[in-house]
Design a protein around this nucleic acid. Sequence first.
DNA 1: CTAGGTTATACTCAGATTGAGCATAATGCG
DNA 2: CGCATTATGCTCAATCTGAGTATAACCTAG
Lengths: 316, 316
Amino acid sequence: MTAPIAVGLSAVIVAADADGPYALVTRHGEAGSGLPHGQFDPEGHRTFELGLRDWVQAQTGFELGYVEQLYTFGDRGRELPQAQLGDAPRDARLISVGYLALTPERTDISAFDAVWRDWYSFFPWEDHRNGRPDLIDATIAPALLHWADSGGRSAAARLDRARHAFALDDLPWVEERTLERYELLFEAGLAPEASRDRGKAPPRLAGPLGEPMISDHRRILATAIGRLRGKIKYRPVVFELMPERFTLSDLQKVVESLLGLPLHKQNFRRALDRSGLVEGSGAFATATGGRPAELFRVRREALRDGAAVGVQTPRA
Amino acid sequence: MTAPIAVGLSAVIVAADADGPYALVTRHGEAGSGLPHGQFDPEGHRTFELGLRDWVQAQTGFELGYVEQLYTFGDRGRELPQAQLGDAPRDARLISVGYLALTPERTDISAFDAVWRDWYSFFPWEDHRNGRPDLIDATIAPALLHWADSGGRSAAARLDRARHAFALDDLPWVEERTLERYELLFEAGLAPEASRDRGKAPPRLAGPLGEPMISDHRRILATAIGRLRGKIKYRPVVFELMPERFTLSDLQKVVESLLGLPLHKQNFRRALDRSGLVEGSGAFATATGGRPAELFRVRREALRDGAAVGVQTPRA
DNA sequence: CTAGGTTATACTCAGATTGAGCATAATGCG
DNA sequence: CGCATTATGCTCAATCTGAGTATAACCTAG
C-alpha cells in the first residue's frame, strides 16, 4: 500500500457590500491568517460538501448557503505543515479541496476565532477601482522584469507571462487572471509563501506584496476570486451576496468590489434592466446623500430560466 | 486515525473531427466501458497532473497535451467497486479527481485496450445537430413527468427541474447543462447506473438511455462535456482539437460536434474573422465536393493576448 | 464542354446592443 | 433658496447580430 493520504477541505467564504469584498479568515498566531479549513472525515461524511458545511458550522458558527467546488490542490511541497492538521498521520500526503461559498451578510462571528477581512489586503494589486495601483509599476513590474532577465533560456517566456498577467506595455488588464498573477509572483519568489515553502530568504522589496497566508491558502483565495470574477458575468451569482432588497447602486458597488474595477453607472443599470434579473419594489432607500434610490429585489423566476445569464460589466 | 482514503484520477480525453466528438474509453468486459483511470501515487507523483500524464501514457500510449482539472468527486456510494482499484485497501474511501484532456488527433491506440467512441453513444439526448432527438419527447419526458408526479411534496420542484433541464414546454435548450441532465436522469432512476449503485431493478423503458459506464465515469464524462461546451465560448480551447491547418468548415463541424448544435455558417465565419483568432494560409483544401476551401491556421499570438476570447456560436 | 450539384465565400440590410455622454429629478444642507 | 449630491432618463453614433441573397469555384454526368 502507498503512503496514506489526508484530504483537507478549505472554504473561501465571501461577503461583499458597498465598502468592499470580504473573506472570512481565521487567525493562526504569528503564522498569519488562514482560511477556515478542516479534515474530511471519510466515515462521518457522505459528501465533501456536507463535511464542509458541518465543520464550518462548528468552527465559525456559520450556516453556508451557496457553495461551489473550486479546485483540488495536490502539489507536494505546498501543503499545510503537518502540525496544523489534527489527527492525520505524520507522513500523510495532504491534498486539499477548495470551496467557494457566498453569503449575503457579514454575520457576526465574533464569538469564534474568525474575522471578515477585505480580500484586497491579500492581493493589493488586484484592486483597480481607483485606477491601476502604483504597486504594480513601482514594485511588481521591476521585480518581475528582473526575474525574467535572470531566466536564461526562458527569459522571453517569463517576460511574456509577466507582461500579459500584469498588463504591462499597455496590454489590457484581465481581472479574472487573479490566480495566474499570484502564481507568477510565487514562482518569481516574490510571495513570502514561496521562500517559506522552499526554505529560502524572503524577498527584498520595498514592502511585502500583500499579506501572506498559511499553507497554500492564498492560492485558494486567488482561485476563488478569479472564479467569482468570471462567473458573475455569465451566471446570476452576485445575488447570493445581496440582501433581500438593495438599490442598483448597492449592486453596482458590490460588483465593482468583486471585479476590482469601476463600472459605467448608466450602462450598468440599463443592462440590468434589460436582463430582467431584478424588479423595482416601489419602496425607496432613505438617501445617504442625494435623491432617494428605488429598492430592487431579485426576480427568482428569472434565475432559473433561459440561457446562462449574468450581469454585464460595462467598464467606466 | 480515520478510514484510509484512496485518490483515483480519471481522464476524459477528447478528440473531435467533422464526424463527431470522441472520448477515449476503455473496455471492462461485461461491466461496460469506462474512462482511463488509475490510482494517484502520493510517493511517486509530485502533482496530480504529472501522475495523470504518467499513467495515461502507460495505459493508452497517449501523450497528453492540454489538460485541465474538472471536478473532484467524493460521494459515498458512487465510487468504483473496490475490485477495480489495484492496491487500495478494501475499506478505503475512494475519491476521484476528474480531468479533461484535449488532443488534435485520434492517435492510433489500437495496441492498447482503449478505443475512441463517439461521446453521444453515452448521451444520445445531447445531440441536437439534426434537430431535437425524438428520444427526449418520446421517452425521457414521460418518464421524468411520471417521476415528478410521484414526488409528493417535491413534485412541483421535480417538474420544474425536468422542464428546464430538457427544455420542455418550449423552454430554451441550454447545451451546457449536460451534467444537470444526467444527474436528473440518475436521480429519477432512469440511468442504469442508479439502479446498479442502489441495488434496485433497472428502469423499464423502451430502450436504455445511452450506454452506461462503470463507476461514476458517465458522470465525469457529462461534467467534461458541459465544461467544454461552456468554455469554447470564452476561451480559445477548440484549437487544441484542431490540426495544424484546417478549413473553416472543419472548424465549424468540430464546434457543432461539441455543442451538439447546428450553427449558422456565414455568421460563424464572420465572427471568426473578426475575432482575429485565425488567419488564412493561402493554401487550399482539395475539395471534397464543391469549391475548394482555404486552409486556415491559428494565430498563436492572438491566443495569449487580450481579454478572454472564444469562438462565437451563432445558432442556425 | 456544358448543365447542374455542391461547397465556399462575399455582401446586404434591418434591428438590437454598446459605449459615451448630456439632461433632468429628488433629496439634504447651509 | 441655491448648491452639492446621488438617481434616473434619454440620445446618438458606432458596432454587432440574425437572417438572408448573391456569386464563385470546383466536380460529375451526359
